[in-house]
Structure formats: structure tokens, C-alpha cells
Nucleic acid binder design. Structure first.
Ligand SMILES: [Zn+2]
Ligand SMILES: [Zn+2]
Ligand SMILES: [Zn+2]
Ligand SMILES: [Zn+2]
Lengths: 158, 158
DNA sequence: TGCGATTTGTTATAGTATAACATATCATCA
DNA sequence: TGATGATATGTTATACTATAACAAATCGCA
């Protein structure tokens, strides 16, 4: 899991983009400049970004200035598993398990909005079981934990 | 768990309101007409309702006509555990475990927006463990499963 | 009754997201 | 290569969700 710790962020961006590009190539999807750039922005910041934050960057770079441009790119990235939407924040993050089939769960710091992605396999199993007994069929699962990241626990104890 | 099945809805409304009222009495909280009515509306519909849906009802009944009226009542209900917010839908549902300390999880039908509340204890345990290893401290947990309810599986197979 | 705290009323505005349609680009094949 | 249908982008307008700020009313309690 990619958490709150340090890491080689430069290579993390490069490999993320590369994985997405490879996947698009393989699937015949168009990895257009806007889509690529939005993914890069998400990877660069490594945090939850609102659609309008992303749009601001795109606008500065002349890649688009209206909301639909950002939302469409984000829809593409989310649909193809390159990014996730954090419902709690109305924001988006790059996926840290590009291409792998996984059950993402997110740890969201209520102080600094940092987001870490981890796995929710156990949760999915338990939920699917409970749901199954009522006849409900689970298709997607949103798991978002809100709390304090290690960094903010020092600044804001209690 | 209160699922998608039939139940004595009339008594379900009454007991929900009664439980909230009792809790407010015990805690010295003001269970005002607007707050009571919003809880009743949520219990009556037994579905996820947007703040503006609720506001429409309040307006018809002369209980308030501006967004803050609905949002304040909802904040009160959510803060005190009488209702939950469904992040995925930007909507609210009455709690089905009034007063009990619990880890709610929701089963959301993507077709009819019906919502059932169940328990996410296993998920919470697993998440807290995974999070703990990174130093993250979980305070609240959002678990929302999106899929098809029994009813909609018949109408919309596949 | 008086006073501080809480709740409600109201206006205005901020923030998030999509509908609809015109234009441009891409992918393919005749 | 050049036509063509599909996909993606540009743009305008608007819908939906949520909160800030302040005034007025009400409540809880001394
Ligand atoms: Zn990184
Ligand atoms: Zn933090
Ligand atoms: Zn009921
Ligand atoms: Zn349904």
C-alpha cells in the first residue's frame, strides 16, 4: 500500500502514466493529451483534488477551461481504473494499483486531506456475505476511513 | 438488519421517532418540530432523500423554505446518530439502530436508490488494523456498497 | 422577569456536476 | 486518399448541493 510515507515520487509518476498508457494501448483506448495531463496532475499532487482544482491547472496550461473538460477526463480515468473518486471529499486521486483488479479503500486525513489507498478485500467479503443474505448483489464498494494521518496526529493530538 | 423486505412500517416510524425523542430527553437536546418532522420524513420514505427533497416537504407544510433549515435539521440528526449521510448519493437516511453504537454500512440500489443499513464491524476491524500499521488513526468509517436490490434484479437482470 | 445560549428565518453566494449542441479529431476502410 | 462513422473536445447554459452571515425568535434557567 502506498501510504503517507516518503517514496520515489518521480518514478511513481512516471510508472503510473506508463501503466495507464500501456493499458490504453492494449485496450484500444485513446490516451489523449488532456487525459494524460489530468492523470499526471493527480499523480503529482498525490492528494485528493477537486475537479475545479484540476480545471485551474488545465486552464493555466491552455488545455481546457470549462468544467466538462475536467469532468470528462476524470470520468475516463475513473471508468478505466486509473483514478478513484473520494465520495467523502468530492475529489479524485490517482490509483496506486494501476491495472490490477482490486478493492480500494481510502484513509482520509480530516486535517490535511491527505489520502492513502489500501485494500478492502476483507470488507468486501464480509459485506457481500451480509448483502447476499438479503438478496442484494454488490457490484462496487466504497470504503473510506476518516481520521488523522501520522503527521497530523503530532500537530493535532486528541 | 433492516433490509429490503416488508416490515411493519407504521410501527417502524413510531419507534424511530420515540427512540430519538427519548435520547434527546436524556441528553438534554431539543427535539424541535422541524427536527422531528425531518426525521419522520426520512423514516416514512425509508429511502435516501436529498436535502432539497426534504426541503420541498417542509415548504409544503410551512415548516421552512430555505436550504439552511433542512441542512441544519439534517446536521442535528446526523450528529446525534438519528440519521446517516449517504456520501455516494449526497442524500440522507434514517438510522435503523437508533441509540446503539454501531458501524453502519449501506447497500445502495443503483436502480431505485433504495438503501438498506447493515453492519460493517468486520470491515472496521480489518481497516483499523491495516491503517494502524501506517500510523493512521481511524475515527469514522464510510462503507457503501452499490449494486442491485432483490426487487430490481428481477426487472433489470444482468 | 431577565439574560445568555440555542434555534430558526432569510439573503446571498460558494462549490459540484451535467445537459445539450457545435466542432474537431480519430480510426477504418472503400 | 478521401469518405464516413465514432469518439473526443469546445462552449454555453443550467441544475444540483451546501454554507456563510446576520437578524429575529425561542428556549432554559437563574
Ligand atoms: Zn508518489
Ligand atoms: Zn493529515
Ligand atoms: Zn420502515
Ligand atoms: Zn432497487
Amino acid at each position: 500500500m502506498l501510504g503517507f510515507e516518503h517514496h520515489d515520487h518521480h518514478s511513481c509518476i512516471r510508472s503510473g502514466v506508463a501503466a495507464a498508457e500501456a493499458h490504453c494501448m492494449a485496450e484500444g483506448l485513446q490516451f489523449t493529451p488532456v487525459r494524460r495531463r489530468v492523470l499526471e496532475i493527480l499523480l503529482e499532487r498525490h492528494a485528493a483534488l477537486g475537479a475545479y482544482d484540476i480545471l485551474d491547472v488545465l486552464r493555466d496550461e491552455g488545455l481546457g477551461s470549462q468544467p466538462p473538460v475536467a469532468y470528462r477526463a476524470l470520468d475516463f480515468l475513473v471508468s478505466n481504473g486509473f483514478a478513484h473518486k473520494i465520495e467523502r471529499l468530492n475529489a479524485f486521486v490517482a490509483c496506486t494499483h494501476m491495472g490490477e483488479d482490486h478493492n480500494p479503500a481510502f484513509l482520509i486525513c480530516r486535517d490535511c486531506d491527505a489520502v492513502a489507498e489500501t485494500q478492502a478485500d476483507t470488507a468486501r467479503g464480509a459485506l457481500a456475505k451480509a448483502a447476499g443474505s438479503t438478496g442484494f448483489r454488490v457490484e462496487r464498494l466504497v470504503v473510506e476511513a476518516v481520521g488523522l494521518c501520522p503527521r497530523c496526529q503530532q500537530v493535532t493530538p486528541a
